[in-house]
Amino acid sequence: MVANASNGDELRIGVFVCDCGLNIAGAVDTADVTEYAKTLQDVVCAVQNKYTCADPGQNEIKDAIKLHNLNRVVVASCTPRQHEPTFRQCVHEAGLNPYLMEMANLREHCSWVHPNDWDGATSKAKDLVASAVARARFLQSQEEMAVPVTQRALVIGGGIAGIEAALQLAEQGHKVTLVEKTATIGGIMAQLDKTYPTMDCSI
């Protein structure tokens, strides 16, 4: 493994540990995790936030990037499947490439599933942060490729849901292809006599 992970630049990593109110801080010693983060290789600052995704939290990240000249950011909060886009955008706004941000999942994968094991959850959280920092040391800037979107939508199914979606898209001025496997549209709804709550005819 190469010792200098970032192609020669000096690595400056900032770690932001989120309490998520009590969602994380209720089961994990976030203060201890923050202190631990400071001891990890190339970490130059570690901050504990109440809600990292809220404006004050995001501003703290942005300020720290400028103040400490950070070139990698680790957000230890919730699942990347929820907030990765948020924090990528956040570091981007502070001038960092979005791919230089890494997350550690201290909520869905830790505090929420180990609510009765303070020590176990805290040491797991530390490992997850260490893992994210280790990964962050090797992160590189990436450019995303832009691909044009074909200007037509396909709606599969000509029941009430499909018809409605197709009509609304057409109203917006988009080309729509509606496919229906049977000879008529209307789906199950068309087989009903009256429908609730209006008690009127289904067609």
Partner: peptide
């Protein structure tokens, strides 16, 4: 047909 997005509205069976 080439399309840029798909709405899946295949409903239900009884």
């Amino acid at each position: 047909r080439e399309v840029g997005a798909v709405v899946v509205a295949i409903g239900l069976d009884v």
